[in-house]
Design a binder for these strands. Structure first.
Length: 372
DNA sequence: AATGAACCCAACCGCAATACC
DNA sequence: TGGTATTGCGGTTGGGTTCAT
């Protein structure tokens, strides 16, 4: 049953195209157009099937095809559209002038998908990979006591199901160290990670806005989380027993809205002002926070649970960034960790860029110890 | 320098949808 | 209306290239 594949006919060539074949195809299409792919190869003098000719033309020879690396904006678009459309490569490519579905698909599979996996994000659902994370067992075994530091910590930052388990191990190691009660550098974890990958994971705990994006100072007027998330991806908001727990940035579908609990910074600064903080200009960790409303840290109960609604804190509009004045380059890995040789490659920069949307500026929470 | 591993991407395959007769 | 041809699409492959040891 089924039709015989067109390319199985005798004498039809397969495999890579030669420049001569390309030229024949181009010449023919320029002269006659590409009305009928089945008859085209014969008319063009090509020993190829029509399907092969069509693919070669649409994926490679078309004059309007844009070659070369994907730009940041293109990658951003791909991720966002993929979160909405899934593997509808042609639909995604239609939003990227000059890009083919095949190219988008390849780029996704070879770059974006892997990076998301490394970040502990399921590329299919754009949600944290729950298969890798059984936090309850981790917490249950190591921090069963609800008053334990790790439990409080995890609840505080709302990472029950959104953080790479390796990061949890690091955090666990850190929390069990003797330094917990001290007010330390926010880079403590970074100084103690073992490699780039771990640094990368730690960086996920740092919240910083996209370097191209302006802070939305009207964030305080935004709707509660459940309303915000309703217009974003369905996987972003979680609750646990009526307790709002949410720290996952909804980068993928909503234009990089980063959500944090309200009053987050208030509690934070109350307990442990950032060592680098310049109170006069809201400079924290080298980043000029436009206002105290930028990040609100939660009011904490005895267990550090987050009880207040979350807020959208960032505006996805990309053109009017005020962040370039930051004394620390925001699009450099060296901002947060110094692994590597400091000579960022394109790939490094790309990864750094992507990771920005997952950074949580909370390392000093490790210093906050209202539970002892 | 050699070699194996990992990466990358053009091309292929097969199914589904659509067009045509 | 049903069968066949054509086109579009997404998954997969395989060979060339780059990287790491």
């Amino acid at each position: 049953m089924g039709r015989t594949p067109c390319c199985e006919k005798d004498g039809l060539k397969k495999g890579p195209w030669t420049p001569e074949e390309d030229q024949k195809l181009i010449d023919y299409i320029q002269k006659h157009g590409y009305g009928n792919w089945r008859t085209l190869p014969k008319n063009a003098g090509l020993q190829r099937c029509g399907k092969s000719c069509r693919l070669r033309w649409t994926n490679y020879l078309r004059p309007d095809i844009k070659r070369g690396r994907f730009s940041f904006e293109e990658e951003e678009t791909i991720i966002q559209l993929h979160s909405i459309l899934g593997n509808k490569w042609s639909a995604i490519a239609a939003r990227l002038p000059g890009r083919t579905d095949n190219e988008v698909k390849n780029y996704w599979n070879t770059h974006v998908r892997k990076r998301l996996l490394r970040m502990g994000i399921d590329p299919a659902t754009h949600s944290p990979r729950l298969d890798l994370l059984d936090l309850s067992s981790i917490l249950g075994s190591s921090f069963y006591n609800p008053n334990s530091q790790m439990n409080s910590f995890s609840r505080l930052i709302g990472i029950h199901n959104s953080i790479n388990p390796e990061l949890l191990r690091l955090a666990s190691s850190f929390m069990s160290s003797n330094n917990v009660s001290q007010c330390q550098s926010p880079n403590f974890l970074l100084q103690n990670v073992e490699n780039h990958e771990q640094s990368h994971m730690v960086s996920q705990l740092q919240l910083l806005p996209h370097p191209h994006h302006q802070i939305d100072q009207s964030a305080a007027t935004l709707p509660p989380l459940h309303e915000v998330s309703a217009c974003c991806s369905p996987s972003t908001a979680t609750s646990c027993g009526g307790e709002t727990q949410y720290l996952e940035p909804d980068y993928y579908s909503s234009g990089h809205q980063l959500l944090l609990p309200s009053n987050f910074s208030d509690s934070y600064s109350q307990y442990c002002p950032h060592p680098n903080e310049d109170s006069s200009n809201n400079n924290v960790n080298g980043f000029n926070y436009p206002s105290s409303e930028y990040v609100h840290f939660p009011s904490l109960d005895v267990y550090g649970s987050i009880e207040e609604p979350l807020q959208q804190i960032m505006d996805p509009s990309p053109e009017t960034s005020t962040l370039n004045s930051s004394p620390t380059p925001l699009n450099s890995n060296s901002t947060y960790f110094s692994s590597g040789n400091g000579n960022g490659t394109d790939q490094d920069e790309r990864e750094s860029y992507c990771s920005y949307n997952l950074k949580f500026e909370i390392p000093d929470l490790l210093d906050v110890n209202p539970f002892v």
